[in-house]
Structure formats: structure tokens, C-alpha cells
Amino acid sequence: MIGPILSVRDLRTSFFSQRGEVQAVRGVSFDVAPAEMLGIVGESGSGKSITCMSILRLLKANGRIKSGEALFDGRDLFKLDEDEMRDLRGNDIAVIFQDPMTSLNPTLTVGEQVIETILRHRRLTRAQARQRAIELFELVRIPSATARLKSYPHEFSGGMRQRVMIAMALSCDPKLLIADEPTTALDVTIQRQILMLLKELQTRLGMAVILITHDLGVIAEVTDHIVVMYGGMVMEQGNVRDLFARPRHPYTQGLLAAVPDLRDDTHHRLTPIPGSPPDMAHPPEGCPFAPRCPHTMQQCVAAMPPLFDGARCWLQHPEAPRVAGVNELEPA
């Protein structure tokens, strides 16, 4: 058993504004094994993107990592100085953002944007870097790679731009790639292509990938492990197969119930989760999901549930009453 490439422990990140402290991430822990694809799922505002920006230490000026550690290759990222961190970014840890329309600099050619990354981290001549950029473009299947180096971002379609972003992220053979909703801003038909490309490259290059998304369908297909986040915390985590087969947290169950299943021909309605996520400026004392949960008990609002073997829910407590479909599973 090889140790994890990234191990996040009790990460807490807050933003400070005139309104006061907004606790975006409240004690998140998870591991990423080498060459695995980990999915982080959650609604917007659940803290999934902030978690990853914290790992990269790229928070906005008013954001601060309050506590926790992120061991990458045995080094705590939060203890590195800014220079060491910069050497790591784009080199050992790379990132792809949600919107390829705005994530590429509109005034520089895409070639230049890839080449500058290579030159930043590798001792290569410009010509060698250019050669490498062409290889990368071919790797992510951008047609007529050599000619396209000279194009500007606005001359590409959304899907092609995301390929450029991927090429840029892969330019220094990162050990860990963070993909923050890489398909959300794309057309549905393109989404799948990009996802499959990511999966293929992940297996081929043997790197670890954190895939952040709010789309469970995306997760199910390509990831190995899943972390479900809500209200700045991990609600449930585990192996993708188990989690989909028997979700143990009412939130995960709610998420799954809200996903359409084309194979399902019973024509029952999708069930949305009522209500909206908690205000992180005033997070609730108990379970953040309690106000929206169909099974809320007195205990849920009184105290924060711990993780019971991967699910943060009081119903997983040994003394908890049995609730059909949650902790009392129908016989397999």
C-alpha cells in the first residue's frame, strides 16, 4: 500500500469582509492516492472550490487558511514559503478552471501561454519549449497543433480552449491535477469529450486528479473515490461503487434522487432537495444539512455529527433509531 500523494487534514478557510467572517471551509480532511481520480461533489457554496484553492494557496486577498495541513509528497504545503510554493504550482500541482472563456489571457497567443509555463519550470530553450507545446497540443488532440500555437484564445471554441487549458496544466507532468468544474461551462456534447480526455490522460500519464463538480453523473463515470461536501464540511466519503449503491447520508441520497436516470422507466418524478445551503457567515451549530433534511432529529440541530465510518450523520450512530432507506437498508 503506497501512501497518499496528497493528504488534507482538518482544513479551515475563512473569508473576512465588512460583514464579518465567512467560514467557507470548516475542517475538511481527505486523501488522494497516486494515480487515482478523486471526485469532490457539492452544490455551489459548499466549499469545494475553496478547498482546492486553499491547497494551492491561491485564495483572494481577504481569504485566509486558519488551520490544518496539506501534506503533498510528505511536505506540508501550508508551511512552504511563497517561492517554494510557486515552484510547485504548475509544476507538481496543476489546475484547470471552470470557464475556459475567461481563464486564458485574451491578449497572448495560446502558444505563448503554454510555453511560458514550460520555461518557468524547465531548463529548456524556447525552441524546445515550443516543440513540447506542440506535443502537448497533439496529446490533447488539438488539430493542426503547430499552426494553432499562434492563435489567440478568442479564435477557439469553448471545448478547444479547455483542451488548451489541459495542455497547459500537463506541460510539466504534474503529479496532481486539480480540475475545478472543467466541464460546467461547456456544451453538453463537448462535456463528455473533455471528461473522457481527462480520464484517458490520467490513466496514461499516471497522475492523481481531483475532479471538482456538482454533477454526479460526471463523477460516477470516471472517479475512484468520492468526497461529498456540504456547508464547508465533508458529509460523506468513500468508494464510488459503494457510495452510489448505498448512500448513507440523507444529503447524498437527496443528490442521487435529484439525478435523472435514463434507464429508469418507472416514470417517477425527480425529487429536488427543498431549501437552500446555509449562510456561512452564521453557520448552524449542528449538522449544516439539518434544515433541509427529511429526517432531522433534536440531536441534529444540537450538535455537529462526527464522521461515522465515512458519513457525517447522527443516524449512523449505533443508538440512533432506525429509519427506512437511511440506516436500515433493504436486503440486497
Partner: peptide, 9 residues
């Protein structure tokens, strides 16, 4: 945990 706490809210 006190049994009362397991009451539905």
C-alpha cells in the same frame, strides 16, 4: 446521547 434527542424535530 439522551433518548429524547432522537425525537424527530
Amino acid at each position: 446521547i439522551a433518548p429524547a434527542m432522537w425525537e424527530k424535530l
